[in-house]
């Protein structure tokens, strides 16, 4: 299995543990990633409030590069905001026939053109559908028995385009988490918004969402995320959300990596902002019990 890889800006900075653990886990699963050389920012959630055309042209630039340099491969994106930005280019082009011409006129400034052939895939989609829980289970050396995991999906991997999961009742992480030997927390906050960039512009409002999510996850040992913004909002503002007991928050591929026997260092566990000693000792216990 091979994919064109678009890490996105966060994965080079505040979410480097997401990038490294994604690469290591996919490598273990026999997936080859071919990073798009010279990729640029997709505009994140800031571009749409600034320019309508740029909202499509920025991700289209990366899609054009991938079509040119990695023809025939799907583009794998771990960040949900990057995923949606790239995904909607083809969706909007299909709905408005004047758009491909305008996008390509803009891309012409750099001699690029976008044909609309490339498929955009979220990391979770690839893990759940292309690789699947059986292949994941086959790599597990440290079964995470007794670990209760709250799967947090956030928004933009699920909505508005419901391509690989039920956007109202997301379940795609359940089988992956079970494949690790862990227990899935039954909750209904997996698709609840974390507040996203309101954490910067209206923190008081975003904290209400974060508090509600953290409270609902109280029965879990760890929350797992598939988006750097969700991760940051859930891990960095726990005390400001008046959440009394710290709850650990990991990226999904970090949890996979730990069950695959990767070390804390290999999964960059020390980079996360919320990892409790209780989680660490549970992980040590899983390690000691390994068969």
């Amino acid at each position: 299995m091979r994919y064109a890889y678009y890490p996105g800006c966060s994965l080079e900075a505040s979410a480097e543990e997401y990038d490294i653990s994604t690469r290591r886990v996919l490598n273990r699963l026999g997936v080859e990633l071919s990073e798009i050389a010279d990729w640029t920012c997709c505009g994140a959630s800031a571009v749409e409030p600034v320019s309508r055309l740029l909202t499509l042209a920025l991700p289209a630039r990366n899609l054009a590069l991938a079509e040119r340099d990695a023809a025939g491969l799907d583009m794998l994106v771990p960040c949900s905001a990057c995923y949606l930005n790239h995904l909607r280019v083809s969706r909007e082009c299909a709905a408005d026939r004047t758009l491909p011409g305008r996008i390509n006129e803009a891309l012409g400034a750099e001699g690029l053109s976008y044909a609309g052939k490339i498929r955009v895939r979220h990391l979770l989609d690839v893990l759940a559908k292309d690789i699947g829980p059986e292949a994941v289970a086959a790599q597990v050396s440290h079964r995470l028995e007794g670990l209760v995991v709250a799967p947090y999906y956030g928004c933009q991997a699920l909505r508005p385009f419901a391509l690989f999961d039920d956007p109202e009742h997301p379940r795609s992480m359940d089988a992956l988490i079970s494949a690790l030997g862990a227990t899935v927390l039954g909750w209904d906050m997996g698709g609840r918004c974390c507040g996203a960039s309101l954490m910067a512009t209206r923190r008081d409002v975003a904290l209400v969402s974060v508090a509600a999510i953290l409270e609902a996850a109280a029965g879990a040992d760890v929350i797992v995320t598939v988006c750097p913004m969700c991760q940051m909002n859930l891990e960095a503002y726990q005390s400001q959300a008046h959440h009394a007991n710290t709850i650990s928050v990991l990226y999904l591929p970090q949890l996979l990596g730990l069950a695959f026997g990767l070390s804390d260092g290999q999964t960059l566990l020390d980079k996360n902002l919320a990892v409790t000693d209780a989680l660490k000792s549970k992980l040590r216990a899983c390690e000691a019990a390994r068969i």
Binding site: T40, L54, A57
Partner: peptide
């Protein structure tokens, strides 16, 4: 956590032409 650092500069200026073109089109 060692996460506050200046990023790379390999793509600096890369998007200048695209932004300029989009500005003129809009």
């Amino acid at each position: 956590k060692g996460k506050l650092h200046l990023g790379g500069s390999a793509q600096r200026g890369r998007l200048g032409p695209l932004f300029a073109k989009v500005r003129s089109m809009e």
